[in-house]
Design a binder for these strands. Sequence first.
DNA 1: GCTGAATATTTGACATGGTGAACCTTTCTG
DNA 2: CAGAAAGGTTCACCATGTCAAATATTCAGC
Lengths: 144, 144
Amino acid sequence: MSQQLDPLSLEVVDLMANLVALFHKEYEEAASARSLTGAQAKVLALLRRGPMPMRQIAQTLSCEPSNITGIVDRLELRGLVARQADPDDRRIKRVAATEAGRTASEELRESLNFARAPLAALEPTEREQLRDLLQRIVEGAQQH
Amino acid sequence: MSQQLDPLSLEVVDLMANLVALFHKEYEEAASARSLTGAQAKVLALLRRGPMPMRQIAQTLSCEPSNITGIVDRLELRGLVARQADPDDRRIKRVAATEAGRTASEELRESLNFARAPLAALEPTEREQLRDLLQRIVEGAQQH
DNA sequence: GCTGAATATTTGACATGGTGAACCTTTCTG
DNA sequence: CAGAAAGGTTCACCATGTCAAATATTCAGC
Protein backbone atom coordinates (compact mmCIF):
# COMPACT_ATOMS: atom_id res chain seq x y z
CA MET A 1 0.00 0.00 0.00
CA SER A 2 2.73 2.52 0.80
CA GLN A 3 5.36 2.13 -1.86
CA GLN A 4 9.04 2.66 -1.38
CA LEU A 5 10.13 6.21 -2.08
CA ASP A 6 12.68 6.77 -4.78
CA PRO A 7 16.11 7.88 -3.49
CA LEU A 8 15.58 11.46 -4.62
CA SER A 9 12.34 11.79 -2.70
CA LEU A 10 13.97 10.24 0.35
CA GLU A 11 16.61 12.91 0.14
CA VAL A 12 13.95 15.59 0.01
CA VAL A 13 12.14 14.10 3.03
CA ASP A 14 15.39 14.05 5.00
CA LEU A 15 16.01 17.67 4.12
CA MET A 16 12.53 18.55 5.28
CA ALA A 17 13.22 16.72 8.56
CA ASN A 18 16.29 18.90 9.05
CA LEU A 19 14.30 21.98 8.21
CA VAL A 20 11.66 21.00 10.73
CA ALA A 21 14.22 20.51 13.50
CA LEU A 22 15.87 23.85 12.79
CA PHE A 23 12.59 25.71 12.59
CA HIS A 24 11.31 24.14 15.77
CA LYS A 25 14.43 25.08 17.69
CA GLU A 26 14.36 28.68 16.55
CA TYR A 27 10.65 29.00 17.32
CA GLU A 28 11.12 27.70 20.86
CA GLU A 29 14.00 30.09 21.43
CA ALA A 30 12.07 33.06 20.12
CA ALA A 31 9.11 32.19 22.35
CA SER A 32 11.35 31.59 25.34
CA ALA A 33 12.95 35.02 24.85
CA ARG A 34 9.47 36.44 25.57
CA SER A 35 8.84 34.07 28.50
CA LEU A 36 6.40 32.10 26.41
CA THR A 37 6.41 28.39 25.75
CA GLY A 38 6.05 27.09 22.23
CA ALA A 39 2.49 25.97 22.88
CA GLN A 40 1.50 29.34 24.31
CA ALA A 41 3.06 31.12 21.34
CA LYS A 42 1.15 28.88 18.94
CA VAL A 43 -2.19 29.63 20.60
CA LEU A 44 -1.43 33.33 20.65
CA ALA A 45 -0.51 33.20 16.97
CA LEU A 46 -3.81 31.49 16.17
CA LEU A 47 -5.73 34.27 17.88
CA ARG A 48 -4.21 36.97 15.70
CA ARG A 49 -6.98 36.23 13.22
CA GLY A 50 -9.64 36.86 15.83
CA PRO A 51 -11.35 35.24 18.83
CA MET A 52 -11.80 31.49 18.72
CA PRO A 53 -13.68 28.93 20.84
CA MET A 54 -11.63 26.57 22.98
CA ARG A 55 -12.71 23.55 20.98
CA GLN A 56 -11.67 25.09 17.72
CA ILE A 57 -8.24 25.90 19.09
CA ALA A 58 -7.89 22.27 20.16
CA GLN A 59 -8.96 21.01 16.75
CA THR A 60 -6.58 23.33 14.93
CA LEU A 61 -3.67 22.23 17.08
CA SER A 62 -4.74 18.57 17.03
CA CYS A 63 -4.97 18.08 20.75
CA GLU A 64 -7.57 17.55 23.45
CA PRO A 65 -9.68 20.51 24.56
CA SER A 66 -8.74 19.87 28.19
CA ASN A 67 -5.17 20.61 27.23
CA ILE A 68 -6.11 24.03 25.90
CA THR A 69 -7.77 24.92 29.20
CA GLY A 70 -4.41 24.99 30.96
CA ILE A 71 -2.59 26.87 28.23
CA VAL A 72 -5.28 29.54 28.05
CA ASP A 73 -5.32 29.72 31.86
CA ARG A 74 -1.66 30.62 31.89
CA LEU A 75 -1.99 33.12 29.06
CA GLU A 76 -4.96 34.70 30.80
CA LEU A 77 -3.05 34.99 34.09
CA ARG A 78 -0.52 37.10 32.23
CA GLY A 79 -3.15 39.26 30.58
CA LEU A 80 -2.32 38.15 27.05
CA VAL A 81 -5.71 36.63 26.42
CA ALA A 82 -9.29 36.88 27.70
CA ARG A 83 -12.21 34.46 27.75
CA GLN A 84 -15.40 35.96 26.37
CA ALA A 85 -18.91 34.59 26.51
CA ASP A 86 -20.45 33.72 23.17
CA PRO A 87 -23.75 35.62 22.88
CA ASP A 88 -25.41 32.88 20.81
CA ASP A 89 -24.30 29.79 22.72
CA ARG A 90 -23.54 30.04 26.38
CA ARG A 91 -21.59 26.79 26.40
CA ILE A 92 -18.94 28.38 24.24
CA LYS A 93 -16.11 30.53 25.54
CA ARG A 94 -14.36 32.56 22.91
CA VAL A 95 -10.73 33.25 23.60
CA ALA A 96 -9.51 36.63 22.40
CA ALA A 97 -6.01 38.07 22.42
CA THR A 98 -5.68 41.28 24.39
CA GLU A 99 -3.76 44.22 23.03
CA ALA A 100 -0.72 43.00 24.95
CA GLY A 101 -1.22 39.53 23.54
CA ARG A 102 -1.42 40.78 19.98
CA THR A 103 1.72 42.85 20.48
CA ALA A 104 3.65 39.94 21.96
CA SER A 105 2.62 37.63 19.15
CA GLU A 106 3.46 40.20 16.50
CA GLU A 107 6.87 40.87 17.99
CA LEU A 108 7.60 37.19 18.16
CA ARG A 109 6.67 36.74 14.54
CA GLU A 110 8.89 39.59 13.49
CA SER A 111 11.79 38.36 15.58
CA LEU A 112 11.56 34.99 13.92
CA ASN A 113 14.04 35.41 11.17
CA PHE A 114 14.15 31.78 10.24
CA ALA A 115 16.19 31.12 7.13
CA ARG A 116 16.29 34.85 6.49
CA ALA A 117 19.86 34.91 5.25
CA PRO A 118 19.68 31.79 3.07
CA LEU A 119 16.39 32.96 1.58
CA ALA A 120 17.88 36.32 0.78
CA ALA A 121 20.74 34.55 -0.96
CA LEU A 122 18.37 33.01 -3.50
CA GLU A 123 17.60 34.63 -6.82
CA PRO A 124 14.06 36.02 -7.02
CA THR A 125 13.13 33.41 -9.60
CA GLU A 126 14.48 30.70 -7.31
CA ARG A 127 12.39 31.99 -4.45
CA GLU A 128 9.36 31.77 -6.69
CA GLN A 129 10.24 28.21 -7.66
CA LEU A 130 10.65 27.28 -4.01
CA ARG A 131 7.34 28.87 -3.09
CA ASP A 132 5.49 27.09 -5.86
CA LEU A 133 7.01 23.72 -5.07
CA LEU A 134 6.39 24.06 -1.34
CA GLN A 135 2.85 25.15 -2.05
CA ARG A 136 2.17 22.00 -4.01
CA ILE A 137 3.74 19.80 -1.34
CA VAL A 138 1.84 21.43 1.51
CA GLU A 139 -1.46 21.34 -0.32
CA GLY A 140 -0.95 17.72 -1.23
CA ALA A 141 0.11 16.74 2.28
CA GLN A 142 -2.87 18.47 3.87
CA GLN A 143 -5.34 16.16 2.19
CA HIS A 144 -3.97 13.14 4.02
CA MET B 1 19.90 44.47 12.26
CA SER B 2 17.25 42.07 11.07
CA GLN B 3 15.70 43.57 7.99
CA GLN B 4 12.13 43.14 6.92
CA LEU B 5 11.60 40.16 4.67
CA ASP B 6 10.25 40.78 1.21
CA PRO B 7 6.68 39.50 0.71
CA LEU B 8 7.81 36.54 -1.35
CA SER B 9 10.20 35.32 1.35
CA LEU B 10 7.49 35.81 3.95
CA GLU B 11 5.27 33.56 1.90
CA VAL B 12 7.98 30.92 1.80
CA VAL B 13 8.50 31.14 5.56
CA ASP B 14 4.76 30.70 6.12
CA LEU B 15 4.75 27.66 3.87
CA MET B 16 7.64 26.20 5.80
CA ALA B 17 5.73 26.79 9.04
CA ASN B 18 2.83 24.80 7.60
CA LEU B 19 5.20 22.08 6.48
CA VAL B 20 6.71 21.94 9.96
CA ALA B 21 3.31 21.58 11.61
CA LEU B 22 2.25 18.82 9.23
CA PHE B 23 5.50 16.95 9.57
CA HIS B 24 5.47 17.20 13.33
CA LYS B 25 1.95 15.86 13.53
CA GLU B 26 2.68 12.90 11.29
CA TYR B 27 5.88 12.07 13.16
CA GLU B 28 4.08 12.06 16.51
CA GLU B 29 1.37 9.83 15.12
CA ALA B 30 3.84 7.38 13.62
CA ALA B 31 5.73 7.21 16.92
CA SER B 32 2.53 6.86 18.91
CA ALA B 33 1.46 3.95 16.71
CA ARG B 34 4.53 2.12 18.09
CA SER B 35 3.93 3.25 21.66
CA LEU B 36 6.82 5.66 21.42
CA THR B 37 6.80 9.35 22.17
CA GLY B 38 8.29 11.80 19.74
CA ALA B 39 11.32 12.36 21.96
CA GLN B 40 11.94 8.64 22.35
CA ALA B 41 11.68 8.14 18.60
CA LYS B 42 14.16 10.95 18.01
CA VAL B 43 16.73 9.43 20.35
CA LEU B 44 16.24 6.02 18.81
CA ALA B 45 16.70 7.52 15.35
CA LEU B 46 19.94 9.17 16.45
CA LEU B 47 21.30 5.82 17.61
CA ARG B 48 20.82 4.20 14.22
CA ARG B 49 24.23 5.55 13.32
CA GLY B 50 25.85 3.87 16.31
CA PRO B 51 26.26 4.18 20.08
CA MET B 52 26.47 7.67 21.50
CA PRO B 53 27.31 9.15 24.92
CA MET B 54 24.48 10.73 26.89
CA ARG B 55 26.02 14.16 26.66
CA GLN B 56 26.32 14.01 22.91
CA ILE B 57 22.68 13.01 22.58
CA ALA B 58 21.75 16.02 24.69
CA GLN B 59 23.87 18.33 22.58
CA THR B 60 22.47 17.01 19.33
CA LEU B 61 18.91 17.47 20.55
CA SER B 62 19.68 20.83 22.18
CA CYS B 63 18.53 19.92 25.65
CA GLU B 64 19.95 19.26 29.10
CA PRO B 65 21.72 15.94 29.77
CA SER B 66 19.49 15.34 32.77
CA ASN B 67 16.57 15.25 30.39
CA ILE B 68 18.13 12.46 28.36
CA THR B 69 18.55 10.34 31.47
CA GLY B 70 14.79 9.88 31.76
CA ILE B 71 14.19 9.26 28.07
CA VAL B 72 16.93 6.63 27.92
CA ASP B 73 15.61 5.10 31.16
CA ARG B 74 12.24 4.52 29.53
CA LEU B 75 13.76 3.17 26.31
CA GLU B 76 15.99 0.86 28.34
CA LEU B 77 13.05 -0.42 30.38
CA ARG B 78 11.50 -1.55 27.12
CA GLY B 79 14.67 -3.17 25.87
CA LEU B 80 15.10 -0.83 22.92
CA VAL B 81 18.39 0.59 24.13
CA ALA B 82 21.27 -0.36 26.42
CA ARG B 83 23.83 1.65 28.37
CA GLN B 84 27.41 0.50 27.76
CA ALA B 85 30.55 1.47 29.61
CA ASP B 86 33.11 3.35 27.58
CA PRO B 87 36.41 1.46 27.81
CA ASP B 88 38.51 4.62 27.58
CA ASP B 89 36.65 6.90 29.97
CA ARG B 90 34.65 5.38 32.76
CA ARG B 91 32.63 8.55 33.26
CA ILE B 92 31.03 8.05 29.89
CA LYS B 93 28.03 5.82 29.23
CA ARG B 94 27.45 4.99 25.64
CA VAL B 95 23.86 4.38 24.69
CA ALA B 96 23.36 1.73 22.01
CA ALA B 97 20.18 0.66 20.26
CA THR B 98 19.38 -3.01 20.71
CA GLU B 99 18.25 -5.13 17.80
CA ALA B 100 14.65 -4.46 18.83
CA GLY B 101 15.42 -0.77 19.01
CA ARG B 102 16.93 -0.68 15.55
CA THR B 103 13.98 -2.57 14.14
CA ALA B 104 11.47 -0.25 15.78
CA SER B 105 13.27 2.83 14.52
CA GLU B 106 13.60 1.44 11.03
CA GLU B 107 9.93 0.51 10.88
CA LEU B 108 8.95 3.94 12.08
CA ARG B 109 11.07 5.57 9.43
CA GLU B 110 9.56 3.46 6.73
CA SER B 111 6.02 4.05 7.94
CA LEU B 112 6.61 7.77 7.80
CA ASN B 113 5.25 8.52 4.38
CA PHE B 114 5.26 12.25 4.83
CA ALA B 115 4.41 14.08 1.64
CA ARG B 116 4.78 10.84 -0.26
CA ALA B 117 1.89 11.47 -2.62
CA PRO B 118 2.64 15.13 -3.34
CA LEU B 119 6.31 14.33 -3.88
CA ALA B 120 5.42 11.58 -6.30
CA ALA B 121 3.27 14.06 -8.18
CA LEU B 122 6.27 16.23 -9.00
CA GLU B 123 8.28 15.82 -12.17
CA PRO B 124 11.75 14.36 -11.57
CA THR B 125 13.35 17.66 -12.54
CA GLU B 126 11.10 19.46 -10.09
CA ARG B 127 12.13 17.10 -7.31
CA GLU B 128 15.72 17.90 -8.09
CA GLN B 129 15.02 21.61 -7.99
CA LEU B 130 13.28 21.22 -4.67
CA ARG B 131 16.14 19.20 -3.24
CA ASP B 132 18.73 21.72 -4.35
CA LEU B 133 16.80 24.68 -3.02
CA LEU B 134 16.10 23.00 0.32
CA GLN B 135 19.72 22.00 0.58
CA ARG B 136 20.84 25.58 0.22
CA ILE B 137 18.29 26.80 2.75
CA VAL B 138 19.14 24.14 5.33
CA GLU B 139 22.87 24.66 4.94
CA GLY B 140 22.46 28.40 5.25
CA ALA B 141 20.19 28.13 8.26
CA GLN B 142 22.49 25.75 10.08
CA GLN B 143 25.25 28.31 10.33
CA HIS B 144 23.11 30.58 12.46
C1' DG C 1 -42.80 21.69 26.65
C1' DC C 2 -40.04 17.54 28.47
C1' DT C 3 -36.71 14.08 28.21
C1' DG C 4 -32.64 12.34 26.74
C1' DA C 5 -28.73 12.76 23.64
C1' DA C 6 -25.14 15.64 22.20
C1' DT C 7 -21.81 19.54 22.77
C1' DA C 8 -18.39 22.89 25.16
C1' DT C 9 -15.67 23.37 28.83
C1' DT C 10 -13.51 22.24 33.12
C1' DT C 11 -11.44 19.30 36.70
C1' DG C 12 -8.47 15.69 38.43
C1' DA C 13 -5.20 11.91 38.07
C1' DC C 14 -1.46 10.57 35.70
C1' DA C 15 2.81 10.09 32.43
C1' DT C 16 6.26 12.57 29.83
C1' DG C 17 9.39 16.38 28.55
C1' DG C 18 11.98 19.99 29.97
C1' DT C 19 15.02 23.03 33.22
C1' DG C 20 18.32 23.96 36.96
C1' DA C 21 20.90 22.85 41.13
C1' DA C 22 23.24 19.56 43.90
C1' DC C 23 25.83 15.40 44.00
C1' DC C 24 29.05 11.45 42.86
C1' DT C 25 32.54 9.46 40.18
C1' DT C 26 36.19 9.80 37.15
C1' DT C 27 39.60 12.31 34.63
C1' DC C 28 42.65 16.09 33.84
C1' DT C 29 46.06 19.76 35.20
C1' DG C 30 49.28 22.24 37.70
C1' DC D 1 48.67 14.91 45.05
C1' DA D 2 45.15 18.56 45.32
C1' DG D 3 41.80 20.91 43.12
C1' DA D 4 39.32 21.88 38.90
C1' DA D 5 36.66 20.05 35.27
C1' DA D 6 33.61 16.77 32.91
C1' DG D 7 29.92 12.99 32.45
C1' DG D 8 25.80 11.18 34.57
C1' DT D 9 22.27 10.93 37.85
C1' DT D 10 18.91 12.61 41.19
C1' DC D 11 15.60 15.82 42.87
C1' DA D 12 12.27 19.46 42.84
C1' DC D 13 9.59 21.93 39.92
C1' DC D 14 6.56 23.39 36.01
C1' DA D 15 4.37 22.86 31.23
C1' DT D 16 2.25 19.80 27.95
C1' DG D 17 -0.43 16.07 26.86
C1' DT D 18 -3.96 12.20 27.54
C1' DC D 19 -8.15 10.19 29.40
C1' DA D 20 -12.32 9.86 32.30
C1' DA D 21 -15.74 12.11 34.92
C1' DA D 22 -18.51 16.18 36.07
C1' DT D 23 -21.15 20.43 34.85
C1' DA D 24 -23.73 23.43 32.09
C1' DT D 25 -26.03 24.35 27.98
C1' DT D 26 -28.27 23.30 23.63
C1' DC D 27 -30.63 20.28 20.43
C1' DA D 28 -33.93 16.63 18.65
C1' DG D 29 -37.92 13.89 18.96
C1' DC D 30 -42.08 13.14 20.66
